[in-house]
Computed example of a mutant assay.
Amino acid sequence: MGGHTNTEEEISVTDPNKNGVKTLGIKLPPELHAQFALVAQLDGISLNDAALRAVELYVATKKEEPDFAQRAAAALAEIEKEAAARRGAIEGLFGTNPEQVAEAAKPATSRSRKAGTEG
Rank of each mutant, 00 (worst) to 15 (best):
A89S: 05
V59D: 07
V59P: 04
A77R: 02
E118R: 13
E78W: 00
I45V: 15
D49N: 12
R113K: 15
G20M: 09
K22E: 11
L42Q: 11
A34E: 15
E103T: 05
T96M: 08
L76T: 09
L57T: 12
Y58M: 04
R71K: 12
T7H: 13
P16Q: 01
K62Q: 10
M1L: 01
E56M: 05
L47V: 07
A54K: 04
G25Y: 09
T5W: 05
G25E: 04
P66K: 05
E56G: 12
A104Y: 02
K81S: 08
V39E: 13
L52E: 14
G3Q: 03
L47W: 07
V13L: 15
S110F: 02
G116R: 01
T14K: 12
L28E: 13
K27D: 10
G116Y: 00
A89R: 07
E56N: 11
G3S: 12
I45P: 07
K62V: 09
E10D: 13
R71V: 06
R86I: 07
E8L: 12
S46L: 09
H4A: 12
V55M: 10
A104E: 08
G88N: 15
A89Y: 12
K106Q: 12
E8K: 10
A60G: 10
T117I: 10
E118Q: 14
G88D: 14
D15V: 13
I26H: 05
E91P: 01
V55Y: 15
L24Y: 15
T7I: 11
V59W: 02
T96A: 13
L24G: 01
T23N: 02
R87Q: 11
D43R: 15
S110A: 03
E56L: 07
I45G: 01
F94M: 11
E64W: 01
D43E: 14
N19M: 08
A40Q: 02
P98M: 07
P107K: 06
A54P: 00
A69D: 15
L52G: 06
A60Y: 05
E91F: 06
E65W: 03
N97W: 00
L93Y: 05
K81Y: 04
S110C: 05
L52Y: 07
T96I: 13
G88K: 10
E80W: 00
A104F: 06
R111F: 01
A60D: 09
E31K: 13
L57K: 15
T109K: 13
V59Q: 04
A102P: 03
D67H: 12
E91V: 07
P30D: 09
S110H: 06
L47A: 03
E56T: 08
K18T: 15
A102Q: 14
L24D: 04
A89P: 00
E10T: 15
L52S: 10
A50Q: 08
L52D: 09
P98L: 11
N19I: 03
P29V: 10
L28P: 03
D49S: 05
R111M: 00
E65A: 14
A50S: 11
V59K: 10
N97Q: 02
A77L: 08
S46M: 05
A108R: 06
A108D: 03
A74Q: 15
A75M: 11
A72P: 01
E103S: 10
M1K: 03
F36M: 12
T109P: 00
G119I: 12
E99P: 01
G116F: 00
